[in-house]
């Protein structure tokens, strides 16, 4: 199963990779290039163990499970997700993940990846919020994380390129930048409290700098197997964890604060190749 994920997918992907966003690359190759180009980045080089584990990234199991789920006829409507438009046309997944969030005409708003996935599972497949298929957002056992990892993997190595052509895309990105620096909570923190400089540590953990694109692309490359949690985690899970540690208010999923923050995050890594899925401490 592992070998199939490791060998079959890159071959299949290399054929269909979209040229405008860069060629599909194996996530380990993307990481190795980043490491070679940034020999002095304490953040990128902080875990020899994780770098060694990367070719056998446990998140690759979810790629395979997610592929099965994506093409399976599921839900009350008994249809697959091939009709879901992530921005590049129904069922078009190559490069879709790195070009989100974006404005969708059918809903009239900017949506991030998870929001869009849930939208399709509800509208196309007929799931409701009460169904575990969309209700359970976190953990290797969740459909959402399996699908997220499979779909994101189709953009590995491609450059982050969230569109800003629609005025609402630009507005959400700009608001997200303000949110990044918005102080609040019981400790007065903003995102920049931890991500304003390169090479700083919180306890033993080296932190990525937001304005350093080559550190930041790894920082936002979720889904990633998080070794300390022994689970694959999403961008939304990272936001929830940061907000919790910052002693802000607890954040809800499928909400516009998430979308705005991710709009800014992904824009801050624009042009840098995504590691999908990544492996983190």
């Amino acid at each position: 199963m592992f070998k199939k994920a490791l060998l079959a997918l890159p071959v299949a992907m290399a054929v269909g990779a979209a040229a405008q966003a860069g060629e599909w690359q194996d996530p380990n190759d993307v990481l190795q290039n980043l490491l070679q180009n940034n020999p002095d980045s304490a953040y990128l080089h902080q875990s020899e163990m994780n770098i060694m584990m990367m070719p056998d990234n446990p998140a690759l199991w979810l790629v395979e499970e997610g592929e099965d789920l994506f093409y399976a006829q599921r839900g009350p409507n008994n249809v697959s997700l091939e009709g879901c438009d992530f921005g590049k046309g129904p069922g078009e997944l190559d490069g879709a993940y790195v070009e989100l969030p974006r404005y969708f005409e059918d809903t009239g708003k900017v949506m991030d990846f998870e929001m869009r996935l849930v939208h399709c599972m509800k509208e196309l497949q007929g799931f409701t919020s009460d169904d575990a298929a969309v209700g359970q957002r976190h953990g290797n056992g969740s459909d959402i994380m399996k699908l997220t990892t499979y779909i994101a993997h189709q953009s590995s190595g491609m450059a982050w390129n969230p569109p800003l052509d629609h005025p609402e895309e630009q507005a959400m990105r700009d608001a997200g930048e303000k949110l990044f620096f918005r102080r609040g909570g019981a400790m007065d923190f903003n995102c920049a409290s931890c991500h304003g400089d390169s090479g700083k540590q919180i306890r033993a953990s080296v932190l990525p700098e937001m304005r350093n694109g080559q550190e930041w692309t790894k920082a936002i490359s979720w889904p990633a197997h998080r070794a300390g949690h022994d689970n694959v985690r999403s961008q939304n899970h990272r936001i929830r964890g940061c907000v919790w540690q910052m002693r802000h208010a607890g954040i809800k999923h499928d909400t516009p604060v998430n979308t705005a923050l991710i709009s800014f995050w992904n824009d801050a890594a624009r042009g840098e190749p995504a590691i999908l899925p990544d492996l983190k401490r």
């Binding site: 609402e168 507005a171 608001a175 609040g184 809800k252 604060v257 705005a260």
Partner: peptide, 28 residues
């Protein structure tokens, strides 16, 4: 949302869009 400044939209998103569990009690 395009009629707001980025600062106004950020505050609007935080305070007016049900993005947080605002009903929870804070320990302090």
């Amino acid at each position: 949302i395009t009629a707001m400044s980025a600062d106004e939209l950020a505050d609007y998103l935080v305070l007016e869009t049900d993005s947080y569990r605002f009903e929870q009690e804070a320990q302090e």
